[in-house]
Design a protein around this nucleic acid. Structure first.
Lengths: 361, 361
DNA sequence: AGCGTCCGGTAAACCGGTTTGCTAAACCGA
DNA sequence: TCGGTTTAGCAAACCGGTTTACCGGACGCT
């Protein structure tokens, strides 16, 4: 005969202590409503029974879960490989913990982000990298779940934390132009979802606009084939650079949309006998720890990653508490950090291309 | 007059469709129990009302949350700063997502891990870096929550995924000893909780045992003051090395318990005019991406970080499904990866200390 | 003594779903 | 025509808590 272990319920405790369920509930949540010794006795009984209030039942009555969701358009297993996300999450966690909220990660389960959201027991959501006109976003809004967008242009009615990606990208390109470079290759981030490839609000599109604006201002044309796309990983960046180089393109400077891609490009370049920055300049984006410790240290665009996470949660909590409306948009600044991966265009190249404008060899 | 937006319940849908709550529930969960056209009609009504079943209510009746918890003894904001954790989490997420489970992070809220656990709506827990005899662990077990331990020696009755930390540490020390080093400093990881400082099952203690075993076998004594402790971060490692160096100790080799600490030590060493590995050899632990891209590339002990996360979840799910008992222990291997941060002991030092045994100057 | 308050505690409704009988009508074969 | 089997749908119980409304007794005051 198997001893069935059933978790004790509030009714079990009530019976064992000879009181009502109400009394047990009060003993835990409103001890002032009970005589001190009664409350103590009830808690003692509960302790010996190993009782702990069922969190789900508690949630149901209170209507709050005291946890917030992080919505990612990609599987967590890929997203967490990116150190950028770790830093962002640290910021999110700092603000959430300070307010006593736990973190719940929501990623497309079995391909359906909407389905995952419906399963999730959260009071609100921070969505990262999901554009405002995304169908999922619309569905979540309809479900009445408060949400703050990150890394996506804000809609008027949709709260969001914005970063000046375009300005940062412009600064990156201007830096290289100032060093005399005129043959570029852009290593872009591949959007997680095919449908987002041309999303004008997405981070890739915003950064591309910044690059192109600076290049155009300098009279430089960037041919279509000088824009390569890959996942924001070191291998992804390496593959992109390898593809363009092996196809015969001979850029002197690489505009990478993430530090991971930049480091991958440097690796692929080194494998092809190129010295950075003597033969090739590389500038990344994000300024993660990797950028500082890469060899050579990576020139990149700094953005306040952790701060972004904190702000998103703070805004979300403000909305949850009714302290703030959905129309609060803040734009965080970016800035160029010059390290060792960028330098003047090689003399040999300068002589052959003086006045040239193409990124092709 | 404010329009109060109340989320529609199953009763609202039932009324609007002119059926019972049961019918609505069946329309979603057991369409075969209903006439096809009725089910279709009900779902249409639900759609126009914007109804989605309340996940908490659903959990309550089904008794499952379809999410698993990650228990960390430190605040998430510090834990996520560590790239090691990102990789581990990626492994956890891969296995969890494959099985349709979401991830819920549980960290000590307001200092109480037990309190946080009680709030959490999870089917099971993966606890990282929590020793089996920790009071919190005992409490969770009593609460009947299935749990798998990681980075902690297993108790017979407590399922766990183990890594051969001691063997790895021994290999690290033997590598340096083989290069002729005899003056060491150990940069240890500071346990999150003061009460865990002397936990013999913890990762720091296991790695220290490995170091000491190798040193003892070579007849080398490690003085007490040659063991420094810090958080497992780059600044932490830098501070530790600075402290020991500035106190006058002159080691030729550093045994760092994590790659982050190792990189921090290299940084502090460089600031003090030391060349790695010419003047100082450094070996890390974990083999995170940082180790590969550090300058110089870090010699370290590789452990299968992501795989560890996957295995932990797989074991947990097996227990949840009743497919497996709590007595399944697997020990994952570690191995030395030699890169550029270690080299032979400097000649000058060798001459002066031939036969010496101390880590002091 | 009589009246109003406070104290300690309880019964029952409620949160929003799922699941278990049960019933009435439709269907079916002999 | 009639008993037996499906079929379609419903009422009510249930999950495990919280919260509201109420009640009896002790206390304090005039």
């Amino acid at each position: 005969m198997v001893q069935v272990i059933r978790r004790p319920t509030i009714a079990d405790v009530a019976e064992a202590a000879g009181v009502s369920k109400t009394a047990v509930s009060f003993a835990f949540n409103r001890p002032d409503r009970l005589a001190t010794d009664t409350a103590v006795r009830i808690r003692a009984v509960a302790e010996t029974l190993g009782y702990r209030p069922h969190p789900v039942a508690r949630m149901l009555t209170q209507g709050r879960s005291r946890s917030i969701g992080i919505l990612t358009p990609q599987a967590l297993s890929v997203v967490f490989e990116n150190p950028y996300f770790g830093t962002f999450t640290a910021g999110v966690a700092a603000a959430a913990e300070a307010a006593g909220y736990a973190l719940h990660f929501i990623s497309p389960l079995h391909g359906s982000l909407a389905g995952a959201v419906n399963r999730a027991t959260v009071d609100g959501v921070v969505a990262v990298g999901l554009s405002a006109h995304h169908p999922e976003v619309e569905q979540i809004r309809r479900a009445g779940l408060p949400m703050v967008l990150v890394d996506s242009t804000a809609l008027p009615s949709q709260p969001a934390i914005e970063v000046d990606d375009e300005g940062g990208a412009r600064a990156a390109a201007e830096h290289l132009i100032g060093l005399g470079h005129r043959r570029f290759v852009v290593l872009a981030i591949e959007p997680p979802d095919r449908s987002d490839v041309d999303d004008p609000d997405g981070v890739p599109a915003r950064r591309l606009r910044g690059y192109l604006a600076a290049l155009a201002a300098a009279g430089i044309d960037l041919p279509h084939e000088a824009i390569l796309t890959s996942l924001s990983t070191i291998p992804g960046g390496a593959a992109s650079f390898a593809e363009t180089w092996d196809a015969g393109q001979r850029p002197t400077a690489v505009l990478a949309m993430s530090d991971a891609i930049a480091v991958g490009a440097m690796r692929a370049a080194r494998e092809r006998g190129l010295a950075v920055p003597a033969d090739l300049s590389v500038v990344g984006f994000d300024d993660v720890e990797l950028a500082y410790f890469a060899d050579p240290a990576l020139t990149t665009i700094h953005q306040p990653i952790a701060r972004k996470g904190e702000q998103a949660v703070e805004l979300l909590l403000a909305i949850l508490d009714g302290r703030d409306g959905p129309d609060d948009h803040e734009i965080l600044a970016t800035r160029l950090v010059v390290r060792a991966s960028t330098g003047p265009v090689p003399d040999a190249v300068r002589r052959t291309t003086e006045g040239g404008a193409s990124g092709r060899s």
